[in-house]
Design a protein around this nucleic acid. Structure first.
Lengths: 211, 211
DNA sequence: ATTACTAGGTTCCGAGTAA
DNA sequence: TTTACTCGGAACCTAGTAA
């Protein structure tokens, strides 16, 4: 749309249906363009039918036309669509390998989780089968935190990415994606402060939504 | 915001967080500007930090930066505020003068209502006491229809403005404002296909929301 | 095939000023 | 005071091309 700043200014000051009494000089100052440009642009917007302009001896009176309102509504709709994308996915509970429990018991991991997520994870992860593409989009939209790897005298523990999420609309947790993961994003691992399986009464095959 | 069309295009195609693989030639065709302009604008948007651009031998790979997303969100918020103004008010049921019933029984009114509103009003109006200013803003935001006056051999019936509304979240009706009204907008008259008092179980003093 | 530079034409902006 | 015209200069766009 053309000359959006001016239309937005009018809409803000006058409301969608009201009128704005002002002057080209004042508008110029507020919009940080010259009085001449304001004058010209108001003419153009009027001719093109986006606004209605009445010139008086003491200034101008402006309001949006249906066409102008329509443009704002269209733009709003477009933005709505862009911004309100996939913000949740569902996954099916499935068996993990019991590794999660071992990892989540490591003190170094636990400390990092506590400081990054403000909770210490229950020792054990919930594995969810999800749509791979859906999960990628979903996680891309989330804030990514990073838990670094470390070494003990026995072995090396890798780093992992970590995305805070809300599980089943009420429990704060996180999706974790180990750097060297055994499964792709077809499966997603979830941690939380409590045992999700028990407090959500989950069994294999049940569906859980995360957001 | 500068170069909104390009940012919107990327956001539409790639989503907020995804990446778009394309070429300046293709973008030029879709946006109806020259390849050179696309090339330059992508450089500018990249330098200014609204998008991230990677140039490959076969085209460009684009994604929005946090700054770019922020701009979209800000614009969206602004539009939200403008568009989602007062879209409902509440009123207290009160006694009318019984005139409504007489007017709504007039065949010429009934026919016009039917064609404008797609319902024939129940013979009688519901009077609601509302906040005057609130009502003005509310009605200003509604589509205004006009029912013209007419004459019979006995007398003259005036025209009236008519605003389709939803009553109590479920019943389609309309606010009517006679051209020569006896009350100001402190009281609002409502019509609907059915008897609102009975189907909503209303008595004087009860509150009704209209939107 | 790309991207993107240069050059020249067009559009746009705003200082000056008339009404 | 206004709005809005003229006109010179700045900004912007694209055809031609190099890489």
């Amino acid at each position: 749309m053309k000359d959006l700043p001016i239309i937005l200014y009018i809409a803000n000051k006058a409301g969608l249906h009201g009128t704005l009494t002002s002057s080209t000089v004042l508008l110029a100052a507020e919009l940080d363009i010259s009085q001449q440009t304001v004058s010209r642009k108001l003419q153009e917007l009027d001719e093109e039918g986006s606004i209605k302009k009445q010139t008086t001896p003491v200034g101008v009176t402006l309001s949006l036309t249906e066409k102008g309102k329509g443009k704002l509504r269209m733009l709003h709709g477009e933005l709505q669509q862009i911004l309100n994308q996939q913000t949740n996915i569902a996954g099916i509970v499935k068996d993990g390998l019991g590794e999660g429990k071992f990892y989540m018991s490591q003190e170094q991991y636990k400390q990092q989780f506590q400081s990054l997520l403000n909770f210490t994870p229950y020792p054990g992860t919930l594995n969810l089968a999800v749509d791979k593409n859906g999960a990628e989009v979903f996680l891309a939209a989330k804030k990514q935190l990073y838990v670094s790897g470390f070494q003990t005298k026995e072995r090396t523990f890798g780093g992992l990415k970590c995305y805070p999420v809300l599980i089943a609309k009420k429990i704060v947790g996180a999706v974790i994606v180990p750097d060297r993961t055994t499964h792709t994003l077809e499966t997603v691992e979830i941690i939380a402060a409590a045992n999700l399986r028990s407090i959500l009464k989950l069994e294999n095959g049940k569906e859980v939504a995360i957001q």
